[in-house]
């Protein structure tokens, strides 16, 4: 069970000089095995929401439940994938994929077996002894997914995981993410800046308001689930609808040259 319940969540960062309220009264429910895309203006607290769900940022107010259990610390089967993939350049591909298991004290033999299988499934087995610096962007992303697979994650929290990739690789990996979800049926919270990606990978698309982030709208997206969805009029229609919603939230209105805060 890996349903997600967020109730009246508020998170405040103690910034230099003044405090920053990143999230305020955010309420969201995600069913077990449901893929949800989250989109919203830059700086509205999307990353913060994922970090809170991963047990890395403390909630000031409200409740956070994963699988019915309050989140107080990193949960065993929650995988967090950040924009730069969070790989360690000093560890080999196999070692990176095994890190979650190692940290949890899984025996070496078991670790090897599980990791070999995960790397195999993601098509990077031949690079097991390379370093991340020797991989292409797409393969690094696959490695980050292999790490999640090795942990047998049932909740995938992804923060703009594909935004550093070129268009072709990105589409390839969007297909891979979809395929993995269809095979495994894990719960997904995917933060993205791409409207198309949100519509392709989210059964529901959650639109957040500008900071402090709250849920501004939720778009149902029942057509999602097939690679060919991309080429249908329904897909385009939904993208247009989402773009309008985002414009209404002022997502495109920010000062043109304002620095992006990740």
């Amino acid at each position: 069970m890996s349903s997600v319940e967020v109730r009246d969540l508020a998170v405040t960062y103690a910034g230099v000089g003044r405090d920053v309220r990143a999230l305020s009264a955010l309420t969201l429910e995600v069913a077990d095995g449901e893929p949800v895309a989250i989109i919203g203006p830059s700086g509205c607290g999307k990353s913060t929401l994922l970090l809170a769900l991963a047990g890395l940022v403390r909630a000031d107010e409200g409740e956070l439940l994963v699988g019915g259990e309050p989140v107080r610390a990193p949960r065993r089967r929650t995988a967090l994938i950040l924009q730069d993939f969070g790989l360690l350049p000093w560890k080999t591909v196999a070692h990176n994929a095994a890190l979650g298991l190692e940290v949890r004290g899984v025996a070496v033999g078991e670790r090897r077996r599980v990791v070999a299988e995960a790397l195999e499934r993601l098509g990077i087995a031949e690079f097991a002894d390379s370093y991340p610096g020797e991989l292409s962007g797409g393969m690094r992303q696959r490695l980050a997914l292999a790490r999640a697979l090795a942990l047998d994650a049932d909740l995938l929290l992804m923060d703009e995981p594909l935004s550093a990739l070129d268009a072709l690789t990105r589409e390839d990996l969007q297909n891979l993410l979809l395929q993995m979800w269809r095979q495994r049926g894990h719960t997904v919270l995917l933060v993205t800046h791409s409207i198309e990606e949100a519509v392709f990978l989210g059964r529901r698309v959650v639109v957040l308001s500008p900071r402090p982030g709250r849920v501004a709208a939720i778009v149902d997206n029942p057509g999602m689930g097939d690679e060919s969805f991309r080429n249908t009029p329904a897909f385009l229609e939904r993208c247009v609808k989402l773009r309008r919603l985002l414009a209404a939230e002022g997502a495109f209105a920010g000062p043109a040259l304002a620095g992006r805060v990740s």
């Binding site: 890395l56 610390a73 065993r76 967090l80 969070g86 790989l87 360690l88 560890k91 940290v103």
Partner: peptide, 24 residues
Amino acid sequence: SAVLSVRSLGATRWQVFRHVVVPA
């Protein structure tokens, strides 16, 4: 991000040191 990723795997302070801080 490297520290957060490793912590999200359930690493203790000491493990963050060993796997991230020292090699970095």
